[in-house]
Simulated scan of single mutants.
Amino acid sequence: MLIIKRVPGENIERALKRYKNKVRNTQQLKRIKRDQEFTKKSKRKRDKLAKAIYRNQY
């Protein structure tokens, strides 16, 4: 759970912007989406290898 402490006198939009940046930087949404569905370790390894091969081509 992310906690954003609001500074007294700070605008709520500014606090929301800091919260959104923190969510993006910690890759929390990516982790949640990944954990919704179980993938075998071998499938993850295969996908990682395929991605590396694709990246290596360029």
Rank of each mutant, 00 (worst) to 15 (best):
Y19P: 00
K22G: 02
F38G: 02
K30D: 15
R46F: 06
R34M: 12
N11V: 01
R14S: 09
K45Y: 04
K40L: 10
R46D: 07
Q36C: 08
N11F: 01
N25G: 08
A50P: 01
I12F: 03
D47H: 07
I3S: 06
K45Q: 13
E37R: 12
R24M: 07
L16F: 07
K22M: 09
Q27G: 08
E37M: 04
E37D: 11
Q57F: 10
R18F: 01
L49Y: 04
Q27D: 13
L49A: 09
Q27T: 09
Q57V: 09
L2G: 03
T39I: 04
Q28L: 15
M1S: 11
P8T: 05
G9F: 00
K45N: 08
I12M: 06
Q36W: 06
L16T: 03
Q57N: 11
E10I: 00
S42K: 10
T39P: 00
K45P: 00
A15F: 02
K40C: 05
Y19G: 06
T26W: 07
K30V: 14
I32C: 06
V7R: 06
A52G: 02
M1F: 07
K17M: 04
K40F: 14
G9P: 00
R18I: 01
Y19I: 03
T39K: 14
R14V: 09
K41N: 06
L16S: 04
E13Y: 05
A50F: 06
N25C: 02
I12Y: 07
I3K: 10
I32P: 01
I53F: 07
G9A: 02
K5H: 13
N21H: 08
N11S: 11
K30G: 13
N25W: 08
Q27V: 03
R55D: 15
Y58W: 14
P8I: 01
L2K: 08
K40H: 13
Q57G: 10
A50Y: 04
Q36R: 12
E10V: 00
K30F: 10
N11H: 14
E13F: 02
K5Q: 12
Y58H: 15
R55Y: 11
F38T: 04
L29P: 00
V7N: 08
R14Y: 06
V7L: 05
N56S: 15
E13D: 12
R24K: 13
A50W: 05
T39M: 07
T26F: 05
Q27A: 12
K45C: 01
R24S: 10
N25K: 15
